[in-house]
Design a protein around this nucleic acid. Structure first.
Lengths: 209, 209
DNA sequence: TTCATATCTGAGCGCTGTACAGATATCTTG
DNA sequence: CAAGATATCTGTACAGCGCTCAGATATGAA
């Protein structure tokens, strides 16, 4: 309470508690990691009572869904930028690298995103519906690089294969077992590129992360 | 208490509480899913007080580590069998399919395995040390299929790439988004094979799951 | 100005992981 | 076989969790 910001749209008491809660959650997530992300801690961080969030989210999972959605949006944006900055034949790898780098730079957020997905056994709906989504960007880039858009099934399988490889690498690139390889190859980026190159769907690229 | 089984090795009061706790955990995991796997529930299932587990495990994470270790052992065995039952050129895909099928058939256990890995930011040590581990089986199979064992780095990168793709597919194969593809391709197995084939490192195989 | 409604608080329930003192069973030593 | 050391297990307790609900409070509509 107290610090009611002078925003023009202040629907009710707090201003926009829903927004404030999601922001508080992301702050906590970055500072303390996923295990510290309790509903009560988020409420505390936002300066409200433990019961307040329940007027904006049905339960904890729904709050985390909102946090995860922001993660997907950021991922979409970063991949769009990566694709824009790469030339044609290197765009697919640029997308792959951007994906893995997003996970590396936002490990807690990435985990929240996939914890929600695993619980629901599905990715967010608009991953396949929104044409600007990371998923659709990969699909469209495959078409641009010569895949036959008419063979819908083949195209989708290739997209899924690339997505799976990128997700696996995103989750495991930070594992201690692979540190010696990063040193040997002269850096993390070289390691990521080398692994993606072995996947076959990707080709070598020259774009900083 | 009470039902002291007539085992020859009964070190102390319970018999082998450590063993009983891990078994209870796996029973709970299968019956109720990962979210029901509380230390207290495990103790309850094993018929002991909530504090009893602390004489065998430092904390909850250490109990889950023991559960996860059993998962890795089972995975090793199943992949060994899959490799044995496949002819040379199809062994790598057979390993990949076996990996994904293990995750499909033991989703809760697979999740415990990788939750622990993500927390520690590493796979279990013997994944790379034990020559019979799933990881080493993949590596050795790549050698058998023509990879140059002298080029250690290249070999390791290819193994990691295959592992990442398999892990990504293992986590996402059950997602609702891909159900229509499974139908279209005539079954889950066809879908899994098709995706792995797109990864490039794998080739088509003919082995039931 | 009055009233309905959306928002937030405070207290409370049953659950969790973990700590600790005390009881009990087993192993070891004489 | 007796006695003390030690490992094992119980009971109780504490703080924190997700979530519920009755009641207080601020807002928008009449």
């Amino acid at each position: 309470m107290s610090e009611a910001k002078t925003v023009e749209s202040r629907p009710y008491h707090h201003g926009d508690l829903r927004r404030a809660l999601v922001d508080a959650a992301r702050r906590l997530l970055e500072a303390e990691g996923p295990s510290a992300l309790s509903l009560r801690a988020v409420a505390r961080e936002a300066g409200v009572s433990p019961a307040a969030p329940y007027h904006h989210f049905k339960d904890k999972a729904e709050l985390l869904d909102a946090v995860a959605q922001e993660g997907w949006d950021i991922l979409d944006t970063q991949m769009m930028e990566a694709k824009r900055d790469a030339d044609g034949p290197h765009q697919l790898t640029a997308l792959g690298i951007a994906y893995v780098c997003f996970a590396r730079d936002n490990p807690a957020l990435y985990r929240v995103m996939y914890d929600a997905a695993r619980d629901k056994e599905m990715l967010p709906d608009d991953v396949q519906k929104n044409e600007d989504s990371a998923y659709c960007q990969v699909r469209n880039t495959m078409i641009a690089q010569g895949a036959n858009p008419a063979n819908e099934t083949h195209l989708e399988l290739a997209t899924i294969a690339a997505w799976c490889a990128a997700h696996g690498l995103a989750e495991m690139a930070g594992f201690k077992q692979f540190e010696h390889l990063k040193e040997e190859l002269g850096g993390e980026r070289q390691f990521l590129e080398a692994v993606l190159e072995h996947v076959g769907l990707f080709t070598s690229a020259h774009r900083e992360c």
